[in-house]
């Protein structure tokens, strides 16, 4: 079982987490939405997989490159 680390592409804050831990997501699915530069930036799981955990919570600040979720496949 491979784990996939999902990283934030931008700095900003977590606006909404729209998937659940344990959920299996398709490739290209949006896991959460960040707010950055007045824009809603989706965090996308390119490969898809099962959501193992989120490493951030809503309203929390995130840095570019920070791991925000872990998926397994």
């Amino acid at each position: 079982m491979a784990t996939i680390q999902i990283k934030a592409e931008v700095s900003g804050s977590v606006w909404k987490i729209i998937t659940q831990v344990g959920e299996t997501v398709e490739p290209g699915s949006t896991l959460m939405i960040l707010e950055s530069m007045k824009m809603e930036i989706p965090v996308i799981a390119e490969d898809g997989g099962k959501v193992e955990k989120f490493t951030v919570a809503e309203t929390e600040a995130v840095n570019e490159g920070q791991i925000v979720a872990v998926l397994s496949k």
């Binding site: 592409e9 931008v10 950055s36 530069m37 007045k38 824009m39 930036i41 989706p42």
Partner: peptide, 8 residues
Amino acid sequence: NPMVYGGA
């Protein structure tokens, strides 16, 4: 690319 800092 609007996905990254709104394309700034």
